[in-house]
Structure formats: structure tokens, C-alpha cells
Nucleic acid binder design. Sequence first.
DNA 1: GCAAGGTC
Length: 861
Amino acid sequence: MKTVLMVAEKPSLAQSIARILSRGSMSSRKGLNGTCSVHEYTGTFTGQLVRFKMTSVCGHVMTLDFLGKYNKWDKVDPAELFSQAPTEKKEANPKLNMVKFLQVEGKGCDYIVLWLDCDKEGENICFEVLDAVLPVMNQAHSGEKTVFRARFSSITDTDICTAMVRLGEPDHNEALSVDARQELDLRIGCAFTRFQTKYFQGKYGNLDSSLISFGPCQTPTLGFCVERHDKIQSFKPETYWVLQAKVDADKDRSLLLDWDRVRVFDREIAQMFLNMTKLEKEAQVETMSRKEKAKQRPLALNTVEMLRVASSSLGMGPQHAMQTAERLYTQGYISYPRTETTHYPESFDLKGPLRQQANHPYWADTVKRLLAEGINRPRKGHDAGDHPPITPMKSATEAELGGEAWRLYEYITRHFIATVSHDCKYLQSTISFRIGPERFTCTGKTVISPGFTEIMPWQSVPLEESLPTCQRGDTFAVAEVKMLEKQTSPPDYLTEAELITLMEKHGIGTDASIPVHINNICQRNYVVVESGRRLKPTNLGIVLVHGYYKIDAELVLPTIRSAVEKQLNLIAQGKADYRQVLGHTLDVFKRKFHYFVDSIAGMDELMEVSFSPLAATGKPLSRCGKCHRFMKYIQAKPSRLHCSHCDETYTLPQNGTIKLYKELRCPLDDFELVLWSSGSRGKSYPLCPYCSNHPPFRDMKKGTGCNECTHPTCQHSLSMLGIGQCVECESGVLVLDPTSGPKWRVACNRCNVVAHCFENAHRVRVSADTCSTCEAALLDVDFNKARSPLPGDGTQHTGCVFCDPVFQELVELKHAASCHPMHRGPGRRQGRGRGRGRRPAGKPGTRRPKDKMSALAAYFV
DNA sequence: GCAAGGTC
């Protein structure tokens, strides 16, 4: 029997599609990466009985990057990134082992059906999948077609089944347009980012951003925020005047009337109108109208609208809202949260999800009534052909979901119920009056039926008293006419919700990437989120945008993305050649880049005003090995040492603190050593600022400390303080932390393993002798006389931390704590209680530390 | 160390 491999874009879709096509009779298993599943069933394909294997990727299989040597910032001129620097495709997520997985599953298959999302990115992923799988599939008989593309517009039985019988071919042009986009974004973004970062970080000490980035999406996003800032700055309040009239409606009620001229900006003219009306005793009714109006129920929910409401009403940032929504999705509470679609397919079962909510403590009444009286068809929205609108899939309570997730879920559910509710109907009454020569109006609204506003009370029509019934010619006594002086007020900073709307309008980013761009400009310290989730640009953000305006405004205009996308669409439609468009666009931006580089002084003038030069920043800390003067420690991101005499800057490891290390010097370059520490519970090691930036030995990497230095005799080096191979990671060596006493520690120089050794020793040295069992270096320990753990009166002991029975009892394995819990990666085990984390000595199957010399030898390869 | 786009 022949086998048909089918591939969707994400695991959840593979499952839904397989369930539809197999009519529920499939067998499922996890793939080798633990993330993607394979669903198998038999059926017919091109008239024969076959075995179907439905699986998925996880988004893009490959990502584009420069060849390794072009990623060395100080060796490559950013201008080379436009053409000379070759690019290569790498696996997008090496942990998922996607290529291997696809090849294992694709081996021996005869046909492949591509079920990737029906957009350009999906089309591109089709070819990534084919590149991986075609080489291992069975050879086709001559002329036989083996590659098919399924095109579907929603995940419904009819659409999926129709797609299966109308298979087409993947569209190479669409895929190529994505290849072009990837290459443009990479080359342009990296060139500008590297140039700006190096230029400004080399001059200023208090930029407070480790990166001065540029990108066709993030830069215009920042541009919107600064544009609003500029409007606020340049705003000049103007005084204006309005007339306000009050008439008596009944004995104890008066109506406030609005002036039809709204306002005037000339006091004397306002005064003239006041004079003409204030003596009038009566207001005459010119017209009275009553109209039934409706406030429409909302369109079904898509991602962007969810993010807007999450920010403006729930006070949740887009990134956080998206993470919360993803969790609700993977736990089965809501449907797929990334969708542009606001329209339910005709066949969509709306009552199913609604019935789920029929017993919910908060909205059972509304839902039951809707089910009994019949739901309203949702409004016709936009169908982007991706996924159905965001819909609650099962009922949940606050206790079950907890705080944030509940609030988002509650909103999604109320919104869903609203979409199948009726519109809100209200009566709008308008009375138009004349007082002397001037006209005034009064409007009032009364609710006829609340409709959806019952479930979305924040959308309710505000309660107002109904207006009196009257007709043309009726008169009301004027109680008062007065003139009010007011001032125009500046706009406020842009809210996140407004920014999302602007980005969507200008096609900057996608539903999935909009939160990422907003997050980027926050993390790079270009804007800060203020109360009400308003985005206020920082000095750095303002200077950058004003600089672009000065040099080349196109770099920050919202059209930069759409202009390029227009070109890319020509490729997708087959109207332009991929190479030509790519070459031409790169050429345009290369010219822009050179012009930008030549004109950078224009941006620098603005920088000078807000930021201090390197030489004027920081505090003196350690001595330079070249001129022996003090270098200044610049704490602001990225932290570094600067020698103003030599005009050299030495970057330091980030996310830690730096101290002078006993005025000790590096034997190689005479620089004073500093001590890097990740916090009281973490790791620390000495570091030579010069070696760390210019590694003295071929095997040493940049950015490392003395604990990775292979100097044969320096007392701070790995050679002198190294003990043995790390018990967890492949390449690390456990090194004695010479500063850790009296709570002595040994820490891996690569991963975050830390072993707490001896609490009450006043001296610990690494011996030249090695353990006869495991060949790790022995430790020579002098314990405190009063609190020695040794039997009898002994205070001195030499032994192996792994094998010596005395030491084994004293060693406890932990993981270094980072400065802040946020910096800890996922899934990292934290230090455990005494005992459990201890190394199980000599237990079969556990990895023994390699001997010290062979571990060291690995460094010299 | 960089972009933007998928997805986990």
C-alpha cells in the first residue's frame, strides 16, 4: 500500500484536519521531537487504497542568517551586508529537529500533500518542507505527480473535504516573495542596526540600551509614538468661547442646550451672539424628531481587536495578552488565538460553544434566554481564510483560571455571546430651538431594548432622561444663556490600542508580530509604558526618530513597509522577477545606507544634547594595562570599561555586578582584574578586561573570564583552579571560585551548575594531585578549628570532592541564581534541598567527571 | 549582539 504524507503548519491543525478527513478513526502518536504528532489512517487517494500520515511542522522550518564569519561585528563593515555577505538557511528551531523529523516520517512515502496555511508564509513553508522531504521519498514513476497543495479557507468539514478533492500545486512565486522579504529584512535591518549601535555606543556612555536597532516594522512603530510626542510638544492652547442655554422643561426640570455654532475663537463675536440671545425670554421649537437607532453588536473577535481591548480595558500589554491567550488555547478554553478573520463560516456551530456557557454563574440567564428565543446571526465580517474568530470552547470559572487568564477569558466569552445577541435599540430624540437669531439643539437617548449591551455593560447607552414631547412652534422659557471661556487641550500620548490600530492600518507587522514590535521598542528603551498604557518616547527614542527625519525621513515613515511589500507582491503575482526585485530594492537601501552613514553627524548633533560622551561617564574602577591610568566603569547598558587616555572601550559580561579584584593584574597584559558576580547566590569569577575582549589564546572565546583562561601558571586561570568536568553540561569545567569563602563554591565555567562545598573552611586550594578514581583535581582544605566537620581535632584534609567520603557529605549541587527571576530560562531546575541534589557517588550509569587534564586538553583543540 | 515572520 502506498503512503501519503500530509503536512500542516502547526500540530493543532494537523489534528483537526486528520480528524475531519479520517472521520475520527485515526491512530495518533508523538513524533521524535515530542512536539509534533503523527495521525495515521487508511483511505483512498487517486483511486487507490493508501495509508495517510498527517503531521505538521511548527511554523517556519528554516530561518535566514549570514554565514558565521559575517556575524562578527568588529570584523565586518555593515555596508558589506547589502551584497557581499552570503546568507544561508539554518534550522529555525534546532531543538525541534524539524528536518530530521520530516525525513523520518517522509522516508518511503509516495505522495505528499501540503496543508500549510493559505498565505504567502505558508506557501514558503511548503517549499521548506519539500526541501527536507523530497530527497527521502520514493521516486515517482515518470510523469506521475507526487506533490500536491491543499487550499482551504476555513477549518470546517466542507472546506477541508473540498480542498482534498481539488488538490493543486504549491505556488513558487508566492514562496519566492517571502524569500525576498526575508533577505531584505535581514540585510537592511542588520546593516543599519550594527552601524548605529557601534557608532553611538562608541561615543556615549549613558544611552541605556544595549542595542540601537533599526527595522522596517519597529522603526515606524516608534515613529508613531514620537509623532504624537511632537504634536504634544508643539501644541499651543487656544482660547475659545461657547454659548450655553438652559430652558425650563417642567416645573422642576430644565434642559441644557448645545449651541449649533459649537464654538468661536473670537471673544467679541461670542459676546455679540450672547448679547443677541440673552435678552430673549423664550426659546422656540423649530423641529422635534424621534428616531429609532441601533448600536450594532460587535463583529466576531480577531487577534488585533482582542489585543486592543486587552490593552485599553484590561490594562494588559499585547505581548502578555498574547501569551495568556496562547495558554488558554493550549488548555482548550478558547479557539486558536491568532486570526485576522471576523466572520464565522456558514457551517460554524455557534450554538455548541454557547451551550457550554448555559450554566455559567455570571451569564447563564442571558445565554439560556438566547438559546430559548433563538440566537441572532453574527454580523458579516471579514474572512481572511485563516482561522475562525476567537471563540470560547468550554466554560471556565475565575477560580479555575486565576486572575489575568480569567479576565481575558471573560472578555472573550462576553464578546462571543454579544456577537450572537441582538443589536441595542434606542430612541434618539432631537429638539432644535431658536433663541433670537441663534439655533440650539438638545438630544436625548432612551433604550428600547438593551440587546448585546446586557452582556457587555461597558458598551451600554448611558441613561438619560427622556425629552419632553413638543412640536414646531412650542415655546419654552429661557432660564439662562451664558458664555463659557474654554481652552483647546493637547492630545495625550499614544495609547497601545491606538498604536495597534495605526500599525494595522499601515500594514506594519501582522497579528502575530504586532505585539513583538511593540515589545521591542519598550525593551530597547525607546518608549516607556505610562499609566493608562500610554507610550511615552524616551530621549533616545525621540533623538532616533528626529535624526531619521533630518537625514532620510523615509526610513521612519509608515510607508517604508508597504512600499517594499508592493514590490514583493509583484514577485508573488509572477509579474516581476525575484532576482531583479531583490537586487533593485537592496540597491535602493544600500544607497540610503551610505547616505545615512555620511550624514550621521546630523543625528549625532541631537545625541550630543541628550547624552554624555563616554569619557564623561562612569566611575574610575580599574587600571588600564597600557597607560596604567584608571579606566571608568560605565554601568548603563551595555556595561563596559572605558579608558579615556587610550580611547578604548572594553565590554563586560552583562547582567551582573563588577568590582575591583584586589588590584591583582593579568600577567599577560598588566590590566587590573575585576570580579564579575551574578548576585549573592550566584556565580562569580575574576576577569581581565583586555583578555575578555581580545582573547589571548586561540581556544578562548570573547566575553569570557579567567575561569576559561588556559594560561598555564596564572593563579586565577582555569589551569590552576579547574577541578574536573561539569556534572551536567558537555563542555564545561568545574572551577573553584577563589572569592567564595567562607561558603566555598565550585562553579561550572559554561553552564549554571554551582556546587556548595565547605561552609567553615578558611582556606581552599586546588592541589596539583588528582584523584586516583576519577582523576579530578584534589582540594586541599583548612577547616575552621571550632567548627571542623572532620573527626577528632583535625582541621586539614585533602581529597576529591566527588569521591572522598568526607567531602561527599559536604558537597551540595545547585544552579546559580540569576540576578532576577525573569532572566532564568524555562525548565531550568532550581537548587534542591540537601541530599537529593548531591552527586550520587559511584552509582552506575552516572557520568563521572573526566580527568582534569583531558578536560583541559579539550580547550586546546 | 542585529530584522521579521512563522509557531510552542
